[in-house]
Amino acid sequence: MTSGLVVLAQATADGNAFAQMIVDGISFGAIYALLAMGFVIIFKSTSVINFAHGALTGLGAFLIAAFATVLDFPGRYLTFLPEWAQWTVNVLTALVAAALFGILLERVFLRPMVGEALFAVAIVTLGVDIVVRTITNDWIGTQPRPLGAPWGLAVVDLGWVRIAWSEVIQILVTIILLGAIAFFLRSRTGVAMRATAFDQETARAQGVNVGRIFSVAWAIAAFLAGVAGLFYSIFPRRATGVDQATAFIAFRAFPAVIIGGLDSIPGAVVGGFAVGIAESAANTYLTFDFLGNGFPGIVGYLLMMVVLLIRPYGLLGTPEIRRV
């Protein structure tokens, strides 16, 4: 307790610690934001609460490990490229494979459930999660699988704050993906997707291929989950790569979704960064002994409860209108 207070006093006096806390929070928040965004995209366009998001994350990271380090495909045929470019091509291939897998999951397990109660569909995804996660774990096997990111241990030291190169890239990639998705939602398919989210039947009547929209949504979500899995599994997070516990990260992103609002993509981003920074802050400042171990891990959920008490549909979510 006393030691905790001393740490608190020191930390608040120390501006650098605060800056470091924010940077760490943003870096982790980016992972949550990517996961939350995929989750929201699925929910918005297909009204499915996807409990299989963790499985998609683990699978995406595994596929990247497989393509980038085990198979080195298609990089091994692209010898004219520098090594980092080969790696990037491998990763993109893996992410496309992950996206295709997302489409497959939706077609096989969720398409038959269209029109069923939302709750039933959500539970189907719980079943999908168990199946996919178990099979992925079998493929991952006994040892963590490295992803072979080219940045290695490189760290940017600005004096007042330190950040790994991989984290810089991760934040950049997240921003690019956010922009891409914002842009995509204004494209023809994006508009069709928003129309589907608003009212499936009307969208269909207007000539929107709703089935294709579902596929696109799952593909995007699986892609984003793969990216999140990638950055979660490399230095400095889990330096050794993807293992059987990787998939659990998605449970940390659920509060981000709810805080932002289940159906709001900007909300997912806000929620993701909010949870990341809250965890980081708890890690830096809430080091009191009586809080025991693992308190930062539930900060997201506590924040979620508080937000829900004030706004039951999340910060940026659409209030549910109850019609008779």
Binding site: Y232, R238, N283, N293, G294
Partner: peptide
Amino acid sequence: VATDPATLAE
């Protein structure tokens, strides 16, 4: 705790 990334950071 293996499944809790925040504890590794801690």
